[in-house]
Write a protein that binds this DNA or RNA. Structure first.
Lengths: 201, 201
DNA sequence: TAACTTAGTTAGAGGTACTAACTTATAGAT
DNA sequence: ATCTATAAGTTAGTACCTCTAACTAAGTTA
């Protein structure tokens, strides 16, 4: 615990986090398939067997990266709300835009966050925490003090829209020839349209 | 060419298609990562080197599966339009619902169809052909005779919505506790909301 | 300081993608 | 009908990969 620099490095001390970081970089570089545990080991300077003291298998490493992703996304949401008037359509749209922005800046991690067949407990929790930020704004907007069923009902189409926009954008479908406006404008317009009370058909 | 049953099977005759079929089944069973060329070979009863006479690499096999997917999806769109009055909101929504339905019924193939970093020419073409079916309806709806920029501008948010709904559904996010209505109702409502002319803000 | 635990190591089994070199069947030209 | 070229298989082998077993060094606690 005394001198980190000169102490023997047999015990790495921070391998778990370092593997996550290396994996994150590799995944973002070549996609979740292109990633190999071996390569992450090389980056971290350990043997290829070392990771299995910290993770059960390859998938668990990727899940850890995805989990970090949810944390970052939640932080991005909160950041987007700074300076917004709580409970306004603009505030809600700002979170939506932050969603798409996160996807654009971290496309492969974003993709991974949703691609796991069976996600861990921790991931479910982080995911809901993330979703909760926008649900909170929607509750405020509709004059509720808590997130009830109606708030969920209002939120779901919005989530759907920004989720779709994220994927289409990172998959290169949202090109100019397919009717592009800026992400902000698209999200703000869609938020307005999807939030207002449904008319009787 | 005479008797298929008794002729020597050294030349398989239909290996390319059979590999695609086997791959499709495997992908749908275990996801694109779980799939291995070797396993597809075992299913088709050929050596592990055989596929490379028909495909450049593993990715190209997966792309062929994705390509088939676009064809199926387009067929699904056309089928959904049977009995609909062309150019109505209902017709447009029916195609949207068919989109989500395809995703639900072929989740892994659907995921793959959009996950390729650089898609082939053929895939781009098939993708646009697919998209064209709904754009056609939107053009009719807005009284146009051709698919111009404005039609694209109207179509994009709709695509975004059903794309997002597809992913959220196959990833298990569209569960009852998150405000479920039926897919049809969600799509129809969203189509109405997203299609109407934007109000001045 | 002894005993136990944590976190590394090396070695190796078994699976994968893909290539090279070879072989067999088929098709087309004569 | 046969000869030849080519298409489509084969076997064998390389270079990876994930993950396990058995071992070892370092840190922790009584």
């Amino acid at each position: 615990m005394a001198d980190v620099k000169t102490k023997s490095r047999y015990h790495h001390g921070d391998l778990r986090q370092q593997l996550i970081t290396a994996t994150r970089a590799l995944v973002e570089e070549k996609g979740p398939d292109g990633f190999s545990v071996s390569e992450a080991c090389r980056a971290a300077g350990v043997s290829t067997a070392a990771p299995y003291k910290h993770f059960q298998d390859r998938t668990e490493i990727l899940q850890a990266v995805a989990l970090e992703g949810y944390g970052e996304m939640t932080a991005g949401f909160r950041h987007a709300l700074v300076g917004q008037t709580p409970g306004t359509v603009e505030a809600i749209a700002a979170v939506g835009t932050a969603y798409v922005t996160y996807a654009i800046e971290n496309p492969e991690v974003f993709r991974m966050m949703f691609a796991f067949k069976d996600k861990s407990e921790a991931m479910e929790v982080s995911g809901m925490a993330c979703y909760g930020v926008v649900l909170e704004q929607i509750a405020l907007w509709s004059g509720k003090t808590e997130i009830d069923e109606e708030v969920l009902k209002l939120g779901f189409p919005l989530w759907t829209f920004v989720h779709g926009l994220s994927f289409l954008t990172i998959d290169g479908k949202a090109t100019p020839d397919k009717a592009m406006v800026s992400t902000e404008d698209l999200v703000l317009d869609a938020t307005r349209r999807l939030l207002v009370a449904p008319e009787a058909s």
